[in-house]
Write a protein that binds this DNA or RNA. Sequence first.
DNA 1: GGCATTTGTCATGCA
DNA 2: GCTGCATGACAAATG
Length: 428
Amino acid sequence: MEMDLAWQELMAITELQEFEVPNENPFEAIPYLSMEPMVSQGGFGMSQPQSESIPATCDAHSAGVYENAYPEMMPPYQRLNPHMDMHYSLPVSHGSSRMLANTQALHPPLMSLLEHMNMTTRSHGIVKDSVINLHCTGQIKQACADDLESDSGLSLGSSPPLASPENAVHGVPSYLPADRTMGYAESESIGEQCRMRQSLLGSVDYHQSYSSYPGTSYPTTANMQPINQQTYQPIASMKQPVLPTALHDIQLNSAGLTRLGSYQSMYPKQKSSSVPVHLNRDERRALALKIPFSLEKIVNLPVDDFSELLTQFTLSDAQLALVRDIRRRGKNKVAAQNCRKRKLENIVHLENELGQLRAQREHLSRERLEFQQNLAIIKCRLSDLYTQVFSQLRDEEGHLYSVDEYSLQQTNDGNIYLVPRNTALEGE
DNA sequence: GGCATTTGTCATGCA
DNA sequence: GCTGCATGACAAATG
C-alpha cells in the first residue's frame, strides 16, 4: 500500500521532472503555464492551502521560506480577485481602451482641478475696470493710446497688413469722443462708423438677440445698477434702440456679468479713478472701431449666425477685418485651452497607466519568486521520493537498485519504467 | 532680476 | 476656398 502511494506520487511528480528553474528572463511564460498541472496533481498551487507537510528530509531552509514567504507572495485581495486578469493581462496594445477606463477612474479632485484649469484667466476684471474707468476722465484715450504705443500682444505680422486691423487702429483717436467725460455708449458718431441697415434700424430687438443664444443672458439695467448705477443711468434712460457696441456688450453679456460679479467684491477697494483700463487688445480695438456687437458673439456664434449678424450692419473693411481676426483669435484661444487641457489629461492617464504597469511588474516578480520556491520544494520532494522508491526496489537477487545507476523514466503511455541511466526508452 | 508657469497668439496641417 | 479644430512654437504676462 505504501508502495502504491509512493508510485502514484512519483508518477505525478515525474511529470515535473522536466521542470527547470526559470531563467532570469522576467517575461518567460512557460513556467507560469506549467503551474496548472502542478496545482492539480501536486497540490502546490499558489491558491491552494498547503495540506501536506514538507518532508523532513527537505531542506529546512526551503521549507521555512515556503511557509513564511508564501502569505506574502499573493496578497489576499489578489488571490480572491477573480478579475485579476482583467487588470494584469491587458496587452499594451489595448492602451486606448485603458485610457478610456482611466479617464473614468480619475480621482475627482484631480479631474476637478483639470476642469477648473483655464477657467480663471487674467482677463477677469476686464470689465470691472472698463465699466468704471471708461467713464473716468481721460481714461479711454489713455487706454487706446496705450494700445497704439505698446506692442504687447500685437500681431507679429501674420495677418496681411490690409487684413489686420493694426493699421486701422492707428487712426483710432479720431473715433474717440472728443468729450472725455462722455460715456462711449453716449457717442452719437456711431452711425458714422457703422450704420445699421436702414431696414433694420429700430427693428432689431437686442434683448431677444442676446437671449436667443444659449449661454448668454441679457441682464436688465436693474441688475446692473448695483455695479455702478450712476454710470449706467444714461444707457438705461435711452428709450429708443441704442446701437449696442462691443463695450456695451461686454457689460451686458454673461461673461461680463461674471466679471462684474467679481468686481463687486473688489469695488470697495477702489480708492481712486486712476486705475488703468485693462481691456485686452481686441476689446480695445473693438471699442476703437466701434464694433456694434459683443466679442462673445463674434467668437461664439455659429458661422451662419455670424454671417447673418454681419449682414445686419454695414461695416467698414477695417471693422470686418477686425471682427474676423477677433473671431479667429477667440476660437483659437479656446482651442489652445482645450488642447492644453487634453495634454494634461493625457499626462495624468499615462501616469496612472504607469502606476498600473509598475504594480503588474511587482506582482509578476512576486509570482516568479513564489514559483521558484515551489519548484525548489518539488525538487526536494522528488529527491526524497526517489530515495524512497529506490529503497524498496530490489532485483531478482534482492539487491537494491542504485540511484546512480538507474533512473525512472515515463513513456508516452504514462507508465514509468526503471531503466539504466543513459538509456532512452523506446517511444521516448 | 531671474525663473517657471500660464496664457494668448500665430502658423500650419487636417477634415 | 472657407471654416473649424488641433497643435507646436513663440512671446508676453504672471507669480
